[in-house]
């Protein structure tokens, strides 16, 4: 049973990585396509979230739990960036 589990995890990790890469490609398409500024922001936010997941999977693959910190910092920076752009847009209109 444990060998089956190890084998399953062995092929699950690259497959999940590939799926997340596909999801990132879709988000990059939306990032390029637009058409409005908030669309770019949403796509970048999604890309950052997916990259946080990819970093966690990399932590499992390399058995290095330190990488989880990278996910944490990534989430923080993403939130700050999104809030900054949101306030910039609102100020630009309502001033």
């Amino acid at each position: 049973m444990s060998e089956f589990g190890a084998t399953m995890l062995g092929w699950t990790l690259p497959a999940v990585m590939a799926i997340l890469a596909l999801a990132t490609a879709m988000a990059v398409f939306r990032l390029v396509r637009g058409p409005t500024l908030p669309d770019h922001v949403v796509a970048l936010d999604l890309i950052g979230t997916i990259v946080a997941g990819i970093v966690a999977i990399h932590a499992i693959r390399t058995a290095q739990p330190v990488y989880i910190y990278a996910s944490l910092v990534l989430g923080l920076v993403l939130f700050l960036g999104t809030v900054a752009i949101g306030y910039y847009l609102e100020r630009k209109v309502t001033r």
Binding site: T36, P38, I85, L89, V93
Partner: peptide
Amino acid sequence: IARAAHYI
């Protein structure tokens, strides 16, 4: 983001 998008 949604509120800012609605404003612009």
